[in-house]
Simulated scan of single mutants.
Amino acid sequence: MTNTPWEASSGLYKKLTFGSMAVSGTGIILAVIGANTHNRPLMYTALGIIGIGLVTHVIGLVVRARDARAWRVSQGLVPAKRPKRDKQAPRDTP
């Protein structure tokens, strides 16, 4: 990769990163507003929004790991995964 992971990351990873930060930040702001106004439904909605932000963050981590593995394979640092054997295919036994 290059000097930093951010320079070498894919556009999808960058979008997921900013998206998760925006969604989580929105949820935090709504939770604070709900707590200060004693609005319980708003607080629970905010918790759901924060959860969506966390799930988006985890998806971003998976995309980043996939991109890093693809880079290592393209550089010859690790061998490529062999495709799994199809269990439905007949074997070549006589």
Rank of each mutant, 00 (worst) to 15 (best):
Val55Gly: 03
Ala65Asp: 11
Gly34Ile: 01
Asn36Tyr: 12
Ala22Lys: 01
Pro94Arg: 04
Ser9Arg: 12
Gly25Tyr: 00
Leu12Asn: 12
Leu42Trp: 02
Phe18Asp: 11
Val32Trp: 06
Arg72Glu: 14
Val62His: 15
Leu30Glu: 09
Ala89Asn: 08
Thr17Gly: 06
Ala22Asn: 01
Ile28Phe: 11
Val55Trp: 05
Arg64Asp: 06
Val78Met: 07
Asn39Val: 01
Ile52Pro: 00
Leu61Ile: 10
Asn3Leu: 14
Gly76Arg: 01
Arg91Gln: 12
Ile49Phe: 09
Trp71Cys: 05
Leu77Ser: 11
Leu77Lys: 13
Glu7Asn: 06
Ile49Ala: 07
Arg40Gln: 13
Pro83Met: 06
Gly53Cys: 04
Lys84Met: 10
Pro94Ser: 02
Gly48Asp: 06
Thr93Ser: 09
Ala68Phe: 11
Ala22Met: 06
Thr56Gln: 12
Gly48Ala: 10
Arg64Ala: 11
Gly11Thr: 15
Lys14Asn: 14
Lys87Asp: 08
Pro5Gln: 14
Ile50Gln: 04
Ala68Glu: 12
Ala22Gly: 03
Thr56Cys: 09
Asp86Met: 01
Arg40Phe: 06
Pro79Glu: 14
Leu16Met: 01
Arg85Ile: 03
Ser74Ala: 15
Val62Asn: 12
Ala35Asn: 15
Gly53Asp: 04
Ala46Met: 04
Arg91Asn: 11
Pro79Ile: 04
Gly60Lys: 11
Ile50Glu: 03
Ala68Arg: 12
Val73Glu: 15
Ala80Cys: 05
Leu61Asp: 11
Met21Ile: 09
Thr4Met: 06
Thr2Ile: 07
Thr93Glu: 13
Gly27Asn: 08
His57Pro: 02
Ile33Gln: 08
Arg82Glu: 15
Tyr44Asn: 06
Arg91Pro: 02
Leu30Val: 00
Lys81Tyr: 07
Ile33Glu: 10
Ala8Ile: 03
Thr93Gln: 09
Val32Glu: 04
Thr37Ser: 05
Ile59Cys: 04
Ile29Trp: 09
Glu7Thr: 01
Gly27Cys: 04
Ser24Asp: 01
Thr4Trp: 05
Thr37Gln: 10
Arg69Phe: 00
Thr2Met: 05
Met43Val: 05
His38Arg: 09
Lys15Ile: 15
Lys14His: 15
His57Met: 07
Arg40Asp: 13
His57Ile: 01
Ile33Ala: 11
Pro41Trp: 10
Ala70Ile: 01
Arg66Gln: 10
Ala22His: 03
Lys81Ile: 02
Ile52Ala: 13
Leu47Cys: 11
Asp92Val: 01
Val32Asp: 07
Ala35Lys: 15
Thr17Tyr: 08
Tyr44Gln: 05
Arg91Ile: 09
Gln88Leu: 10
Ile49Thr: 14
Pro83Tyr: 02
Val63Phe: 07
Pro79Lys: 14
Lys84Ile: 11
Met43Gln: 12
Lys87Thr: 09
Ile49Asn: 05
Ala68Leu: 13
Arg72Tyr: 13
Thr56Arg: 03
Leu77Asp: 15
Asn3Thr: 12
Asn39Thr: 07
Ile29Thr: 13
Pro5Leu: 13
Pro79Trp: 03
Arg72Asn: 14
Arg66Asn: 09
Asn36Trp: 12
His57Ser: 14
Glu7Phe: 04
Leu42Lys: 00
Arg72Thr: 08
Pro79Thr: 09
Leu12Asp: 11
Ala46Ser: 13
Thr93Val: 12
Asp67Pro: 02
Thr2Tyr: 04
Gly53Pro: 06
Ile29Met: 12
Ala22Arg: 02
Gly51Asp: 04
Gln75Leu: 06
Phe18His: 13
Pro5His: 14
Ile59Trp: 05
Ala22Trp: 02
